[in-house]
């Protein structure tokens, strides 16, 4: 019995059907974590990408190091770090929020690279034209660079969203009750792990297939020339 749903162990099929509602509750947590984590990664990644282009050498180099460090160390250990170390310094966050921050941090390292590639792909002539029109650096980013960059980076970003989705089960180790956490709990109580684990796998498979198809469509719909922000 969990969330008011009882399991029925008569056959694997009835078992699967009876725990589906429980896992779907876990799915909403998974989706929320991925959505929040990805939003954080998009913002933080952009900040990193811009800082890395800073004219102040120290800022650019420090950012480069931080990004490299985040990218080369495991999400799981970063998560443990946040989960156990922050409270020692008086910052106590709910497990879900800690998980979201960990996901966002890890993936900001990836997204910052995508932004960087996107910015560098803008031809020099565009920057020069903007300078010739006497635009400020900020105006150039807002009106010229980012609008042209967006359609190019959307597919890659989409792939990272899918990748992040598949990493959310890691949050179960810090007691976030997403799908895998629930499946393990069901397993502990019924001594029958394979059905719940298989179901989680299948749900992930469906989810990623749907997301990939969605990204593919989005890629086709987006105007190649760019999207004006205003």
């Amino acid at each position: 019995m969990m969330y008011g749903y009882a399991w029925d162990l008569t056959t694997p099929l009835t078992y699967a059907a009876s725990i589906l509602p429980i896992l779907l509750i876990g799915l909403t947590v998974t989706l929320q974590a991925a959505a929040a984590g990805f939003a954080l990664a998009l913002v933080l990644g952009l900040v990193f990408a811009l800082l890395r282009r800073s004219r102040i050498k120290a800022v650019a180099l420090t950012t480069a190091f931080v990004v490299e460090f985040l990218r080369d160390t495991p999400l799981l250990v970063q998560l443990f770090f946040l989960y156990y170390v922050l409270p020692d310094y008086g910052i106590t966050l709910p497990a879900f929020l800690t998980g979201v921050i960990a996901l966002g941090l890890q993936y900001s390292a990836y997204t910052s690279e995508v932004y960087r590639g996107g910015i560098e792909a803008i031809p020099r002539g565009q920057w020069e034209a903007a300078t010739a029109l006497n635009m400020t650096r900020w105006q150039t980013y807002r009106d010229i660079v980012i609008p042209q960059m967006v359609p190019r980076i959307v597919p890659t970003m989409g792939n990272y969203l899918v990748a992040m989705l598949k990493e959310t089960p890691v949050l179960s180790v810090v007691t976030v009750l997403e799908m895998l956490g629930l499946a393990n709990m069901i397993g502990e109580r019924t001594f029958e792990y394979l059905v719940p684990l298989s179901m989680v796998g299948i749900i992930f498979l469906l989810l990623t297939l749907i997301c990939s198809a969605g990204i593919h469509r989005l890629e086709k719909v987006l105007p190649k020339a760019g999207i004006p922000l205003r």
Binding site: K166, E167, N184, Y193, L197, V200, F204, T208, L209
Partner: peptide, 14 residues
């Protein structure tokens, strides 16, 4: 590629 690695590891484990 479509199912999470951690799920796969637990699955194989059991």
């Amino acid at each position: 590629r479509g199912t999470s690695l951690l799920v796969q590891l637990f699955w194989l484990y059991y």
